[in-house]
Structure formats: structure tokens, C-alpha cells
Design a binder for these strands. Sequence first.
DNA 1: TGAAAACCTACTAAAATGATAGTATAATGC
DNA 2: GCATTATACTATCATTTTAGTAGGTTTTCA
Lengths: 145, 145
Amino acid sequence: MMISARGRYALRMMVDVARYQGDGHVALKDIAARQQISQKYLEQIIPALNSAGFLTAVRGQQGGYRLTRSPGEYSLGEILRAAEGELSSVTCLDSHREPCARQADCDALPVWRELNRIIADYLDSVTLQNVLDQQIPETTIMTQE
Amino acid sequence: MMISARGRYALRMMVDVARYQGDGHVALKDIAARQQISQKYLEQIIPALNSAGFLTAVRGQQGGYRLTRSPGEYSLGEILRAAEGELSSVTCLDSHREPCARQADCDALPVWRELNRIIADYLDSVTLQNVLDQQIPETTIMTQE
DNA sequence: TGAAAACCTACTAAAATGATAGTATAATGC
DNA sequence: GCATTATACTATCATTTTAGTAGGTTTTCA
């Protein structure tokens, strides 16, 4: 799967924080309980969102997490990339790996490139606010003439 | 990855057969050599393409595989689905698994549905002939008003 | 000062992935 | 009709990824 539990959980955490932060902070314990996800597992995912600057944390009592921007200013693409490392439909185009030796004459590569582009374009066009509002934009694919 | 080696190899095999079949048949040995893929591994992938009716096989000397249709009549979507079982960006929407218990109130699910639709639309719009011609259509995503 | 929260790091079970290996079966040409 | 060539089938396996446990440390607030 291109989007694993890490990315899915990351998105659900961000939505949860957006929904419940109010003026204060949202504790991971509460996110875990509401979303029915192991808190210990979420603890491992959240540093990625934190170090990307998507959240601020406050320790101690009444501590927790808050968004650093308004929900409309986050794209799903950036959230998922932060959580997953990279969004690529095939390993051939994963920049964290050593490049495939066949890149020069692989017939399939242009397909994967274009597919990756479409996926990125879509995920970069949807915001956290869209998810919060349950208003996921419907789209069509147009072939360029 | 949503598209693993199975799907990538399947596509490359189909392209190879399309390119080299001429009036005869293409032996798996030759595909494996040209594509630099283990023949034994390809043997495991090809039955999926075979039973989907995408190829016909002839045994014995001068045997091998042939396409059953012209390259323009195969979409990449059907080839990849035959090889991979299913194309889904998330496990939540894999119809071969038991459905996720949270489907009813999952905020993220509509996103994955739409993402899956876009991916399917694109892959169903590209043909084997397109790949053969190295003419992968460029597309844009249009939001519906 | 103690409880509650984030933070950090190591470990582990299970599944998926990408093969390898060996054998059986069928068709063709000489 | 038999040797050769090729597909067909099934079992096994090593590696990597995934998803999750576990346990301890540090910070902050009431």
C-alpha cells in the first residue's frame, strides 16, 4: 500500500486535533481513545508531524498538541509526506533509495511518473479543513490536447 | 507500495510480448533475459495474465506467449489489477479484506475513495499501445464545480 | 512535590515481498 | 516415438516492511 497505517493515523490525528483543540491543547491519550489507536504507536508517528512544524506540543498537566496553522492551510499531501517519508506509487521513484539501473530504458517509468504526479496533485489540493467539513472535492482527469 | 514488483513486471512483460511477438510467440526465457528479471519469478506472475485472458500460451518448441488483443485494447488498469489482485491506495478499501469497523464514521475514508477513483481513472485511460509508443498522455486534475 | 503529560529508544511478532527450487506436463521437430 | 523445448504447478525461504509493545526519562503545571 502506498499509504500505510502511519499516514492514515497521522491524518486522523491532525483531524482530531483540529476538531478538539478549542483554545487549549489536545492530549495524545484522548486522541488515542477517540480514534481507537494505540497511544504508544501514535507516539512514534507524532514526532514526524512535530518536526515538520505542523504541531506544537506543551508538556505537563493540561498539555498536549495544537495545530500551528489554521486547518485550511494544511494540504493532505504535506501531512502524508511528513508521516510516510514519501508518497510514491512504485519503489522505482522513491528518492530515498538508490536509483533503479534500468531508469534510462524502462518502458514503464513514464507511466509511474505521471501516476505519481496525479496522486500528488490531488492530495496537495485537498486541505485538512476539507476533511473536517466532510467536503472532499470531486475531480476529473482531463487529458491535455 | 501500491504497485509492487508483481505489477511492474506484469506490465513490462506485456510490453515485451507486444513488441516482439511478430507473427509468432515470445518465450518466457527471452522476456526474462531482455527484461533482466528472474524467469522463475515471471512464471508465477504470468498465470494471472493468462487466466485473465490477456495472453495465449503455446508449449513446446517455438512456443511462448502472444497477446489475445491488439495493444491498444488493453488498459494498464486491467493489467495491473490482474497482476496485483487489486489497486487500492489504502488497505481500508481492499475488497479482499474484511471491511474496517470504522468505515461509518471515519473522516479520512472519503479521501481514500476519491484518491482510488483518480488512480483507477488514470490507469484505465492509458493503453499498452501508449506505453509501446512511449506516448504517455499528460493529464490535469479538474475540480468539479 | 507529585501527577500528568510529552519525549525517546529499543525490541518484537506478523505479514508482505521477491524471490529460488524442483517437478510435472504438453507440444513440436527430427 | 523420442529428445528437446517450453509452459505449468507447488513448495519453500530470506529479507524487508509494517504495526505494535514496552519501558524508561524529562518537563510542566496545579
